[in-house]
């Protein structure tokens, strides 16, 4: 159904706006809303939730009435997922195993394809970058960044 509409981008964006807007509106009633003259902590987010929902409806209307087709261009998802995974892995490792291992995992995931075609290059990138960051952040700026798991 999405694909037959001329503006699938607007349609999806509109849906995201509506879901986020309604969720915000609903959640902001956990806090005192108050009135325009005496705004509670929930007033501003609740109002913004309503505005966002309206904008979402407008976006959907636009997507449904678009004359010229404006399809979503295809993209490789592999780099996105590898980078996302690499960052998450880095965040889980930085405090437990230290920078050297966390950076190795991040760079290995970010350079996943080259790791097989040109492992030496990836190794060089790893050594250079980690050495540079260790010198700069840990040595020069004395940042509390553990290099190894024993700090």
């Amino acid at each position: 159904m999405l694909l037959r509409v001329n503006g699938p981008k607007d349609l999806l964006a509109g849906l995201i706006f509506i879901v986020f807007g309604l969720a915000t509106f609903w959640k902001s009633h956990d806090y005192e809303v108050g009135s325009a003259l005496e705004m509670g902590p929930g007033y501003f987010p609740a109002a913004m939730g309503v505005v966002l929902t309206i904008l979402g409806i407008a976006a959907i209307a636009r997507g449904l009435t678009l004359k010229v087709a404006d399809p979503i261009t295809p993209h490789k998802l592999e780099p996105l997922l590898l980078i996302f995974g690499g960052i998450i892995a880095f965040s889980l490792l930085i405090e437990t195993t230290g920078l050297l291992i966390a950076a190795a995992v991040l760079i290995a995931m970010a350079c996943y394809r080259r790791l097989r075609s040109n492992p030496l290059e990836v190794l060089a990138i790893y050594v250079g970058l980690t050495g540079f960051s260790a010198f700069l952040f840990v040595y020069l700026f004395e940042m509390q960044l553990p290099l190894f798991w024993w700090r």
Partner: peptide, 21 residues
């Protein structure tokens, strides 16, 4: 890879917590 690593360290260094990364 340089942007990735430096930015990850940067995110961590603001409050020294992995949550920000």
């Amino acid at each position: 890879p340089a942007i990735l690593l430096l930015t990850c360290i940067g995110c961590y260094a603001v409050h020294f917590r992995v949550f920000d990364i």
